[in-house]
Nucleic acid binder design. Structure first.
Lengths: 207, 207
DNA sequence: GTGAATGTGAGTATCCTGTTTATATTCTCG
DNA sequence: CGAGAATATAAACAGGATACTCACATTCAC
């Protein structure tokens, strides 16, 4: 634990060694997330990101070999965050409603800084050649967490995977839509989303 | 300005008068929807659309003054379609489950040709100056249809609007997600989506 | 104080874009 | 048929934006 082995977060041109460069890299990723969320993939240019980060374009290319590597780093950071949120909500064996509440709260939190980043990352940003595996792994773990929750609150073994898919995409849809309208923190919306999750998992009727 | 053509569908440079030009316009709009859905807003160029339509770029500009007018026409056509689908599903006073089934079937149908067109139109395509009103009107009517359904199957008057918002965005989310994975016609997914709608509207518990 | 790490930003070389225009083909209708 | 209108063509343009490099300046660690 003495030596922080620099895990190559993404293919980088140079590993930041001093505190200042680490801050630079962080600023770039953060600004990148901002630009991506605000302007979409179409408006995501390296120059714009550098400017938003308050950093020269040269510094950006000192740490990221190209545009895609930057997107990759952004994607990685965001997905890790989201994954940890779901992980936490699904931990322990909470009653259904509490799980739903924590899930909603966490997901909203994960989207409130860069509201449309998630969607842009999933829909617009092109798939990197090297990151296909990472992306698939994220999707898998993402679904697995939901599946675990579904399995926990639903006895039927049959459609667990499909239900997880439906549940996750429904939640994402609601949150994405709310984000687009700046309604992410409307309490009645949160309540209704919890309600949607809870009633679906309660399942008043067999399929 | 004595004679005015009755219905300028979108701001057009010229009204098509012969059958052949009408077909051209149709082909352009259709190809535009295809390109938009396939490549997203970032890949949506007039030249590409013209080529996809099997038409020269000049023909395109004969009928659409600029790029935005074309998007506008595409948007208009798609939204009209979607609106009619919801309208039909919500018509009459059907039992809850039948409403849900028809809604799901219709929405899937409306998305199966150009799977991601809807999302691209909502998220990526820039808002036209003149179309703000049209867009808002669509959103309103869209929500109204859902709200009517909610009101019909739910006694509580309170959160009708919020519920409509949640329901519609959840449905959209599921369909959009399925479209992205080419799973739009998986029957078990359709069933689960119906289930989601029905249980939510059944509402096992008050908020 | 010295070399390594870090930062700068003007400059480059494309590549594309939306749009026009001059010209060619096809239709309508007397 | 034939003349003028409607429709179609595609080469060309003007302009802008883009990803990325490079030669150099600054700041750090030791």
């Amino acid at each position: 634990m003495s030596t922080r082995i620099a895990k190559p977060a993404a293919r980088m041109r140079k590993q930041p060694r001093q505190a200042r460069s680490i801050a630079t890299v962080e600023a770039i990723i953060e600004a990148g997330a901002h630009v991506l969320s605000e302007l979409g993939w179409a408006g995501f240019s390296t120059n714009k990101v550098a400017e938003a980060a308050g950093v020269s374009i040269g510094s950006l290319y000192q740490y990221f070999p190209d545009k895609l590597a930057l997107v990759e780093a952004i994607r990685r950071r965001h997905f890790d965050h989201v994954l940890s949120v779901i992980s936490e909500a699904a931990a322990d064996e909470k009653p259904l409603r509490q799980f739903a509440r924590e899930l909603v709260r966490g997901m909203i939190g994960a989207h409130s800084i860069h509201p449309t980043l998630h969607q842009v990352l999933l829909d617009e940003a092109p798939g990197d050649r090297g990151s296909r595996a990472a992306h698939a792994s994220f999707q898998t773990r993402y679904l697995d967490h939901y599946a675990a929750a579904v399995a926990q609150y639903r006895k039927r073994r049959k459609d667990t995977e499909t239900m997880a898919r439906v549940l996750s995409s429904a939640v994402e849809g609601v949150i994405h839509n709310a984000a687009r309208r700046n309604m992410l923190d409307a309490p009645e919306l949160q309540k209704q989303l919890v309600e949607l999750i809870a009633t679906y998992l309660s399942g008043s009727r067999a399929t």
